[in-house]
Design a protein around this nucleic acid. Structure first.
Lengths: 229, 229
DNA sequence: CTATACATACCGTCGGTCGGTATGAAAGGA
DNA sequence: TCCTTTCATACCGACCGACGGTATGTATAG
């Protein structure tokens, strides 16, 4: 059993098992032993050979999930033909149109009910993502496509609100309520001259949100923000 | 040492010690033993006599902190002379003007760096608080003071943004940057016809925020959202 | 005398460590 | 070319201290 020739496979198996357990029970309530049980044939030593700590497993999972977004930015950053506004729109459009990515996100959403994961996630969107969006907004200020007085503020709103507010997880709602919510954000962003949302993008959001919405959730009590236990 | 005649005193001592430790190291990283060390003369049995679990201590602390806000609502709910908009403004005004309460909030802010506490806090503001604010906004729709198409959305914005975005903890900034941020929120809320912020309230926020800002934080790296460790 | 306010010894589980073992692959000699 | 030596690494599993929580005992106020 020792000296597997393809350790990356083992590493990925650990990540997959950990992801399943974290999704099912949350980070804090998942023990290393739970991951071992899910794996079936590995030992504690194996996990701690591939990962320095339980947190490191969570970090590795996060890094895997960020690749999609980073690829979008890499493509847009080098583009010289698009306006700042178009880059903002394309960022959201790419995210909401890729069915495969949306399905991955949907599988990830339950993990946000875990406090540790939520905090790390908030930190990421609030910092890295908003900084990246700020670049595009400032381009938009320069080229006149987003002539706002509030570039930093708009970047933070765009980093956080679509991810936590528009998506039917923390603040659930029917499709028509969600559309209403998006139109509200559209109005607020237009007021500060960052008119990211147009009818086309709203439609993309609505179809994307339909993918994210869980299939047939019968609970009469709708899940609210950051539900624990 | 057994059979203290005033158990409420002991209970409060436990809460105070726990608050100090949670503030210093966060909920997850504070052990019952840490709280015992802070207390000095009590035992584990004492804590588990007064509280069912470690989480119960956190809940009790949260409940203590909510009393101030609940008192404001109790006073405003029965008021028949104020418009919905005025009640919204008075809610924020009361919070940002009471120096004693602001000092308590400032002492509480570091606890929000703890994921568990942050999640519970977000849940509270996102649910209970926004529901209460929604009542006032709907009164404002009825009496014409907040003629918005987006009452629910405005309530959620007002519940979350002032608490997490305007305050210099998760998104730090100089006083002038913070004023800029408030003016941005003012513009966005006006766009959806919930003009809560006027010059007077902005001034209240600025003086309140000055109290909340930590005294002489020398760290070159500004603390960002939900920093752990 | 009784209910209660604690103290203390103890339990199972946790994240993490550590000495050890098995093996693949490179290196070297013939 | 084949065999052997060497070494880095994949993995094992017993063990550790600390944790949250419990069971039971004891002293005292009422």
């Amino acid at each position: 059993m020792a000296r597997n020739a393809h350790p990356e496979v083992t590493r990925q198996r650990i990540l997959d098992a950990a992801r399943a357990q974290f999704a099912a029970k949350g980070f804090e309530k998942t023990s290393i032993q739970d991951i071992l049980n899910e794996l079936g044939d590995l030992s504690k030593g194996a996990i701690y050979h591939h990962f320095a700590s339980k947190e490191a497993i969570l970090d590795a999972l996060s890094n895997q999930d960020m690749e999609f977004t980073e690829n979008i930015f890499a493509r847009l950053d080098s583009d010289k033909t698009m306006s700042g506004l178009q880059k903002l729109q394309e960022t959201m459009r790419s995210t909401m149109r890729d069915k495969q990515h949306l399905t991955a996100i949907r599988a990830l959403l339950p993990q946000l009910d875990d406090p540790t994961t939520l905090a790390a996630n908030l930190r990421h969107w609030g910092n890295e993502l908003s900084q990246q969006l700020l670049v595009y907004i400032e381009e938009g200020v320069a080229d006149g496509s987003t002539p706002t007085q509030y570039p930093r503020e708009a970047a933070q709103m765009l980093a956080l609100l679509p991810n936590y507010w528009l998506i039917p997880h923390f603040f659930p709602g029917t499709p028509s309520e969600l559309r209403h919510r998006i139109e509200c954000l559209e109005a607020m962003l237009e007021a500060i001259n960052v008119p990211v949302f147009d009818d086309a993008l709203i439609d993309d959001f609505m179809t994307g949100i339909a993918v994210l919405a869980a299939p047939s959730n019968e609970s009469t009590e709708a899940p609210q923000i950051a539900t624990e236990q």
